[in-house]
Simulated assay, not measured.
Amino acid sequence: MSLFSGTIQSLEQGLNYSTLKQQTISQNIANVDTPNYKAKDVSRKNQFQSELQYSLKAYRTNEKHIEFSKSSEQAAVISRTSHTYQENGNGVDLDKEMTTMAENQIYYEALIDRLNGKFNSLQTVIRGGK
């Protein structure tokens, strides 16, 4: 039996994603004036699908049904090449990056708060409910 039924591991993966996202946003902001720099983003689709596959069990009743399989793919940094916001070919929208950074910070703090709650629960159990 795992501690908290895998909750801490899921929170840890969320924190790892948020940290990578913060680093990517910071890199984009640092290169806002670099000619031909293309903004980068973190793809979480693979990680989200991986989480779903660990928590869901699917039984195929027909060979045409989509098969669920566990994936070990993690979040990946990808380049956004579809937009150019400056005449020098730079693809960084500073307002968008700052908004994304604020969203990511709120997400990170929510995960930390939840993790602290789990550890406080464990501490209460260890103390015998006192």
Rank of each mutant, 00 (worst) to 15 (best):
Q74G: 09
Q49A: 08
A75C: 11
G14P: 05
A76R: 09
Q49E: 07
A102R: 08
K130M: 06
L122C: 15
R80M: 13
T7H: 13
S72I: 14
L94I: 04
K130R: 07
Y108E: 14
L94V: 07
Q49F: 05
K40A: 12
R127V: 06
L3Y: 03
Q53F: 01
K38E: 09
E97Q: 14
T24P: 04
S2C: 03
T84Y: 02
S82G: 04
I112F: 06
S50D: 02
A39M: 13
N116L: 10
Q105G: 02
S2G: 08
M101K: 06
G89N: 00
T19F: 14
Y107H: 15
Y108K: 11
T124Y: 02
I8G: 06
S72Q: 15
G91E: 09
F48M: 01
I106L: 07
K70D: 09
Q23G: 13
A110K: 07
A39C: 15
T24K: 07
K64C: 00
T19L: 14
Q13E: 05
N62V: 07
Y54P: 07
A75T: 09
T19N: 14
V77C: 07
L56G: 00
G89K: 05
Q74D: 10
G117P: 08
S26I: 14
I29K: 15
K130G: 02
M101G: 03
N120W: 00
L56I: 01
V125I: 00
T61C: 11
S79F: 10
T81V: 04
I78C: 08
S69C: 05
Y108R: 10
G129T: 01
G89M: 02
S2M: 06
Y107Q: 13
T100W: 12
S26D: 12
F48E: 00
I25A: 13
Q23S: 14
N16F: 02
T99A: 15
L3M: 10
S26G: 15
Y54E: 04
V92W: 06
A110H: 08
I66P: 05
A102H: 04
T100S: 15
T34V: 06
T19G: 11
S72W: 11
A39N: 12
N46H: 05
G117Q: 13
S43K: 00
F4Q: 15
N16Y: 02
M101S: 01
M101P: 03
Y108C: 13
Q105L: 04
S71T: 13
N90L: 06
I126D: 01
E103C: 12
L122G: 11
K130N: 04
I25T: 12
N120T: 01
Q53E: 05
